[in-house]
């Protein structure tokens, strides 16, 4: 059986979630590997959410927010950007592949772009295989 990754998507309410909605209403095809959680703004996303998701079953985590300059709360997505840059540097050290954690921007009008991102991320994580959850063997 081929590996079907589980990807957690955390999408901001104003742009990205509407973008995902548009992808749905315009019947764009994209892999069913994504599970979406809506938050008010990408600035709400704590790195703990991402680490916890990986540790509890996700093989990848995707954060989507409004394009830079477009955040409904002016600067939440910049905050997300700073946190994600930091987290990615830590993740590299911890042996978590770069493609498992992704921050990107999707506007309300970008249903196509949303579908593309999901396709791309699913493909990449399929290559990587499941996220190794065990804390190492002690035997």
């Amino acid at each position: 059986m081929s590996f079907e990754p589980k990807i957690l998507g955390i999408l901001c309410n104003w742009c990205s979630y509407s973008g995902a909605d548009l992808a749905g209403t315009s019947r764009k095809k994209y892999p069913a590997n994504i599970r979406i959680v809506r938050v008010m703004c990408s600035g709400r996303v704590d790195p703990v959410f991402i680490l916890k998701a990986l540790q509890s079953g996700a093989d990848g985590v995707l954060i989507l927010g409004c394009h830079p300059g477009d955040c409904h709360y002016t600067s939440g997505n910049y905050k997300a950007l700073r946190r994600m840059e930091m987290l990615k540097k830590l993740a590299e050290q911890m042996g978590i592949e770069d493609d498992r954690i992704r921050l990107d921007w999707v506007a309300a009008s970008e249903g196509d772009r949303f579908a593309e991102i999901i396709k791309d991320m699913t493909e990449k994580i399929k290559q990587l295989g499941p996220f190794p959850r065990d804390g190492g063997d002690n035997g």
Binding site: D46, P47, V48, P68, L81, R82, R83, L87
Partner: peptide
């Protein structure tokens, strides 16, 4: 992660 969050939050820049 809590500490990392705090450090990321004080960075004074919006430019990747």
């Amino acid at each position: 992660a809590h500490f990392m969050n705090a450090i990321a939050s004080v960075i004074d820049s919006n430019d990747p």
